[in-house]
Design a protein around this nucleic acid. Structure first.
Lengths: 229, 229
DNA sequence: ATGGCTTCGTGCAGAATTTCACAAAGTTCA
DNA sequence: TGAACTTTGTGAAATTCTGCACGAAGCCAT
């Protein structure tokens, strides 16, 4: 079974490929035809060897002494990421964020059209947001089948996020983009990506505090415990 | 210089601590007094040994045979992440997202009050959004000093994101939350966290495609558009 | 007290990731 | 043609992260 499936790309590399793609699209837009791993590394803020290794997971598409062709590499990254086709998205939770995502047209051109939005609130069901009518979360199964939906975005309240994801999984959706600040319980066959601004801010806070303390060390240094190197 | 600074917590652990904190806050809200590493691990979807190791970076705050105290651990995580004080945030870019962040009151109670919002568009400057008046990006330096701002959120267009971050860094801000789909060029002394839904969707797409291909091995695939493979 | 039970803290090994360093393979120019 | 130069692709070392396994330490019942 495993030998049928394509050679797996390391998770860490998978998270970088979309970033490379972004940059290559920009290069393409400015009529750049070729690039070297050094150039892409500089633009992506990573090590050049890492760029080469990441790209090598796609195949040997570079030319030694020359570099890589922008359009060709764009195609190869898209192929590998599954971006040569569209993936339909349903938004679960028609609050501020959910409606904003439904109205925001920025995902369709990038291959992720939002084709449905649902809620569990009878007052919201039937209303329209953007081009979509808010559906009943209880019809999610039929919706997923009829509209060929593969990705679900959770934009409900924290309290209902778990039941929302349960509904999605029941409906056969195995890719979840979760905006609720909660760790969802899902089987390992389901992919979840969490977007939590609170978490991001707290991570920034940690490093900011590190810097602050280090600076304070000059004036006052009683904080440091007994760490040496 | 390095020996003065506190024992560093591994990056991977730093990204998990806010998740633990979230869970512990929920436990606290439901009057749970104590928890074991096994329980927290189940709720966070990680290995119990990892939880114990992560928490051990804070110090030895557990009791063998018993577990950890919820409120005490909350305090310790907050201390380590620098959440015992507030960090003021400025939003750069008063578009849809920027104004939404400024109006959204959810960050202030978690220690990240949005105290300012700026733009470079003369038509927007002077307007109000929520409780804030949109300022001129050229006054960012004064604003950062006067309002004691430490974190900047980039919500500009892609085209102006780099100049926005340059202004922030000039103004002395070293923690950036970037919503623009672009890799920002910053000195290594600056922390950047990127929030890019396109990237997240594309990562999901990769794993979705993996699953699809594996399943298709049995049937036959006519759906995929112009893929060779 | 003592034995049994639970759970933490951590050494260590293995896995994953990053980075180095260099041969291989191509280009350019005289 | 061939020498100088550029850049890829990739073994292998270095680093980071994960997870097991178990001793240490506390609780409880008898």
């Amino acid at each position: 079974m495993t030998q049928l499936q394509r050679r797996r790309i390391p998770d860490a590399a998978v998270t970088r490929l979309p970033v490379y793609l972004q940059i290559l699209n920009n290069l393409h837009a400015t009529n750049v035809l070729r690039f070297s791993s050094d150039e892409l590394a500089a633009l992506a803020g990573v090590n050049a060897a890492k760029v080469r290794k990441d790209l090598s997971y796609l195949g040997s598409y570079g030319t030694r002494g020359v570099g890589y062709e922008v359009t060709y590499l764009i195609h190869q990254i898209k192929r590998e990421l599954g971006l040569l086709r569209e993936w339909n998205v349903v938004v679960v939770g028609a609050g501020n964020l959910g409606c904003a995502l439904a109205k925001f047209g920025g995902f369709a051109p990038r291959g992720f059209p939002v084709v449905g939005i649902v809620d569990n609130d009878a007052k919201k069901i039937g209303q329209t947001t953007g081009a979509l009518t808010i559906g009943d979360v209880r019809n999610l199964g039929k919706m997923v089948r009829d509209l060929n939906i593969t990705i679900g975005a959770i934009t409900t309240s924290t309290a209902t996020a778990q039941s929302a994801v349960d509904s999605l999984i029941d409906a056969g959706v195995a890719s979840i983009l979760n905006f609720a600040p909660i760790v969802l319980a899902t089987p390992s066959s389901v992919s979840v990506r969490n977007v939590d601004l609170g978490v991001e801010l707290q991570i920034l806070s940690y490093y900011e505090q590190m810097r602050t303390e280090q600076t304070d060390g000059a004036k006052l240094q009683n904080k440091s415990s007994a760490v040496s190197v």
